[in-house]
Amino acid sequence: MSEKEIKNLEEIFEQRIANDEKIEPKDWMPEKYRKTHIRQISQHAHSEIVGMLPEGNWITRAPSLRRKAALLAKVQDEAGHGLYLYSACETLGISREELYDQLHTGKAKYSSIFNYPTVTWADIGAIGWLVDGAAIINQVPLCNTSFGPYARAMVRVCKEESFHQRQGYEIMLTLSKGTPEQKAMAQDALNRWWWPSLMMFGPTDAESVHTEQSMKWKLKRKTNDELRQQFIDQTVPQADLLGLTVPDPDLKWNEERGSYDFGEIDWDEFWQVVKGHGPCNKERMNTRVSAWENGAWVRDAAVAYAEKKEKAKSEVAQAS
């Protein structure tokens, strides 16, 4: 293909997106588009399945049967989301095996929020409220993203996600209205999960590289800082309703801006965790790698059995 031909295809391609047309797996696409989407979708998928671990940690200790069932269902939903997203990613010509390999060797990232530990039951409430809340803000715009399979997976995910946030907030509400011990547990969880949740929106706009391209391809509608501000403005009143204090002494309503001013994020911590030095990075990876490697004999057995059945079937067919 000549450079001129490629340029022409690229122009048609960008025009299609500008016209709100969906790009489907078998459509021509620039290699950069394909690679960017593989990276973004796979990291999204990895986040879902690694995210099962901090919450799965409390399934056996959930304090009531109703909470146990809700938590099991939530974690299962996350596995399902991982599956929808891996499926969408595989349409771009990469296998599930390769994707897991990228995760296990650290080539691919996942949302660093999941590198924090869930040390009390209140953490489960805080995660549903704050982490799912932040995720929803990031995910809703993706329902209109340019790549068809990703957009449709996101519509499915968003439908299920709204219940997750409500469940988390309900846990926080119950704790806040409970005994002083329970309220203290809730406040402690908020103290530990607030800042990492803000970091979920990524570095400041000044430090972000891919923004322009992402906007064109509808992977992003607003900037990191805009989304972060949206999250804070939406969440602080929710904390007020709980009677809990957001752990930011600089948090203040700014009448002029119509938004909350907030304190400086510890970007050192952010980069340390991204680079692999958070409290649970190693543990999360070991768990995923072990599950995959220890499961190899199971997957092999299933394949071997299927092959034996196929062989037996074709022998019967031949004989008749």
Partner: peptide, 9 residues
């Protein structure tokens, strides 16, 4: 949960 041999399992 989270430790199975495959996501589907």
């Amino acid at each position: 949960c989270g430790h199975g041999p495959s996501l589907e399992t």
